[in-house]
Design a protein around this nucleic acid. Structure first.
Lengths: 339, 339
DNA sequence: TCATATATCTTAATGCATTAAGTTGCCAGT
DNA sequence: ACTGGCAACTTAATGCATTAAGATATATGA
């Protein structure tokens, strides 16, 4: 005998399919007695509720939420900030009894899952421009995190203000400032200098952070020279070290390093210490994100803490709530030994 | 106007729905001319292929594969072995144009997604016994990794032999051996000693590894005392350090530490060095898994390398292939400075 | 007592597509 | 000229369930 269906169960019990359906979905639509009879009969027959695929087709929602990763899963898992975020999303989704589908941002056939999911939580601006276009016209709910899409709700922090705060906390008049930024540019270009070939999306976190840094510098009468502004194509150790070496070996050497991630800042500090620089006497460093590792490292890093796991939870909640606003989460400037 | 469907497109073109469907799924069933006409008309109308939810209902397969994590996502993401595995699965799945749904092993309502997915790749024995029961009677394809389920295909390494090999590589006659194992036991018990209250599943990796260790010891005339066999409920640093301290502070102190994971081994080495023990002169250590971090640590760790990313790929391939055998992957014993 | 409200169930349309079986027309072979 | 065979479509059954609207029967109120 094949798997029982609503229909087969209904026939077995001599009631209509609607009643069985109601027994599962709308208890108020039938008498208590009948409902219990149905439920126990279902248990007997091995019928464990309406088929979810059919339900999804009919109701138009499945309880599956896709999380789109801006980068490969590899990056996602190796980067503490990203994985914290993912954990937060997973936790909140589980609370809502929803499911998490991981969608790699390198792919660009949203159609292949759009029909399956209730929508998309998109973490970080996808590098794949096709994917962005698809997201723009996606008929399902789309919530962005750490970047904006016109007309879509988002969850973020005030990157400009946070960057400004962090810069103001470390900068002094007369400082020679270097910035180690995240990829603002297309991946093709490996480690471009200068802000010229910037990426399309002016609302990316990196732009906002740079804006914040520059506002602070302006206020202190400092200027950022092109040789001291680096955009890393990848947020990994190798990249960060290359950039740090290049920046620190210039003369006169920078006295402050504004880093757009803690991972970059840690690498840079390692390089700096390797070059015999004293932190913070000769070089002050400030990071961004707030990861545990910086607390174990010496000197501890001054940084903007942004609680990625909570961001993940907030994103999942906002996705669910249906609100269409652009939510700004709190951040916290924490000073360490590096400044 | 609402979203176009197969039906509406068919009507617009004056052909049957079957023909439209065939245009997408079985090109050989209609003339090339008509097919191209249909396809371009679809593009025109904004119809991007059959609804996947409906397709899934009809065909009974969705292209979504659920990966069940034995532990929380938190653990999964923080543990390099597990996250490597996940990456491998994701990579291979992407190659197959399939999608990955993350299912936390702490949940136990498989029904809520069974209908959505093509099946389950289950990484590590779920601690939740209910979940195991559900997997046993799951009507969809189930493939296990690092543990066995009766009648289900699996991907694993020969844990017994690998453990034996690693033990044989470090043990000498007269050694006093301690074993730091993974949770063989129920989570309730925190750091139980002895093999008595073992977990139900005799085929778990931990059991097999212990078997291997013991075979090697037996061969060398060594015995394992209960005080020196520890089962860690969690594979984290805190747990490992607690156990390592307890074991190393006994007298006479052990001369060899057989660790069932590299993470445990690293923590243990840290503790040992902290206690002033010289490695490998006073204490030899061997790990299991093979993670990059052990190469950067000093002394480098002798360990069984098992290439988790390849295991992930193999699992996804085996899932897809439909083969029902129990696949054993190669491993590699690599000796470092710790032995 | 009659009309009306309520509780409880059923009917039937609907969501969107797949596919086995049936139809039609055209061509080749004898 | 007749027939088998094939290409190219269409018909209609099917997958599994949701839900608005309709049908009864029973209860309520005046």
């Amino acid at each position: 005998m094949s798997k029982p269906t609503l229909k087969s169960v209904a026939k077995a019990l001599g009631v209509s399919t609607a009643t069985i359906s109601n027994a599962f979905n709308r208890p108020d639509q039938l008498s208590l007695a009948l409902r219990e009879k149905i439920l126990s009969a279902c248990a007997e027959l091995g019928y464990d509720g309406p088929n979810k695929a059919a339900q999804s087709l009919r109701k138009g929602s499945s309880g599956i939420v896709a999380v789109i990763l801006s980068d490969s899963l590899e990056y996602m898992v190796s980067d503490p900030v990203a994985s914290q975020f993912l954990q937060g999303v997973a936790r909140e989704l589980e609370r809502q009894s929803k499911h998490l589908l991981l969608y790699s941002g390198s792919a660009d056939n949203l159609d292949s899952i759009t029909d399956f999911v209730d929508g998309f939580i998109c973490y970080g601006a996808p590098r794949n421009l096709k994917l962005i276009e698809q997201l723009k016209r996606c008929p399902k709910r789309v919530l962005t995190v750490d970047f904006d899409l016109p007309g879509r709700p988002s969850v973020n922090i005030d990157n400009e203000q946070a960057a400004y705060d962090s810069a103001m906390a470390v900068l002094k008049p007369g400082d020679r400032v270097a910035v180690l930024g995240l990829r603002l540019i297309d991946a093709a270009d490996s480690r471009t200098v200068g802000t010229a070939p910037l990426w399309d999306n002016q609302s990316s976190v990196s732009h906002r952070r740079l804006d914040g840094y520059q506002r602070a510098m302006q206020q202190l009468g400092l200027t950022l020279s092109n040789e001291l502004l680096w955009h890393l194509p990848e947020s990994n150790q190798a990249c960060a070290e290359t950039a740090a070496k290049a920046v620190l070996s210039q003369s006169p050497a920078p006295t402050v390093l504004l880093c757009m991630s803690d991972l970059i800042a840690l690498s840079a500090m390692r390089v700096a210490l390797g070059l015999g620089l004293r932190i913070p006497e000769q070089l002050r460093v400030v990071g961004f994100d707030g990861i545990e590792e910086t607390l174990r490292y010496h000197p501890t890093l001054s940084s903007v803490w942004q609680f990625s796991d909570q961001k993940g939870e907030a994103a999942a909640r906002a996705f669910q709530s249906g609100q269409d606003d652009n939510q700004l989460l709190p951040y916290e400037l924490r000073l360490g030994e590096s400044s």
